[in-house]
Amino acid sequence: MKKIILSAAVVILAVACNNNSQIGTTVATTSSEAGFKTAYIDTEKLMKEYKESADFEAKYEAMSKKMQEELERDMKKFQNDVMDLQKNAQSKGMEWAVARQKELEKRERTLAEKQQNYMKKFQEEGSVERDSMVSRMKDFIKEYGKEKGYDYIYGTGDAVTVLYAKEQYNITDEIVKLLNEKYEKGSTKTEEKKEESTEIKVEETKK
């Protein structure tokens, strides 16, 4: 009997690691020339404290839990039906047992396909949303660098690009603060639009 398990936790971990790696690789550069205005970002801390990243992880953890619970329910029912077959095969006869076994084999294949489809959907949706978030972060850091007049902004984290830097050049907290403010402002606008849409629908219903 094949045991069906949704390894979503591993996927989430891989997604989180990819986040750190992508940001670190993108904003990182090197220069030993003097006279440049430089700063660095602790990308590991950025991904932990940026609220959109935290919401992303929470969303996919909840999705993974829901998928796993559904598959476990299906698997439990399947296992109960297998036990029923084993228990009643002799009393209900060979013809019933053979037909029941074929049905269960088909259900087992369906369960395996369902698991694969869930994993594919989970990974594809997570990858698209993650890439979109990372792209927005890169654009924000790029614009921030231009606005503040930086020649270079370095990135630290899993992809180590800065072996030493004075703390005065660490702009991580400021970037986290600004990104969170922008994200929260965007979330508020989205909620307001939803509320306006709901109010309009209510008014139309009254008419």
Rank of each mutant, 00 (worst) to 15 (best):
I4N: 02
A9W: 09
E72G: 00
Y152D: 13
Q90H: 08
N180L: 05
G155S: 08
K66R: 13
K2A: 08
E195P: 04
N18Y: 07
E49H: 08
V128I: 12
K185A: 13
G186A: 15
K59R: 06
V15E: 11
Q101W: 06
A58V: 09
Y60A: 03
N19W: 12
T29G: 14
S132R: 09
Q90C: 01
M75G: 10
T188S: 08
V134M: 04
K207D: 10
S132H: 07
L6H: 06
E108L: 09
V82Q: 08
K3F: 11
K185H: 02
M63V: 00
L163W: 11
E108V: 01
Y40K: 01
V134C: 01
V160I: 14
N20V: 03
K166W: 01
R136N: 15
V15H: 04
K106M: 07
K182A: 14
N20C: 05
K206I: 08
A112L: 15
M133F: 07
E181R: 04
E44R: 10
D55K: 11
M1C: 09
A159H: 04
Y150V: 05
A89F: 05
K92D: 05
N18E: 15
E33V: 14
S31N: 08
T156H: 03
N170Q: 05
V134Q: 05
K148L: 07
K207Q: 11
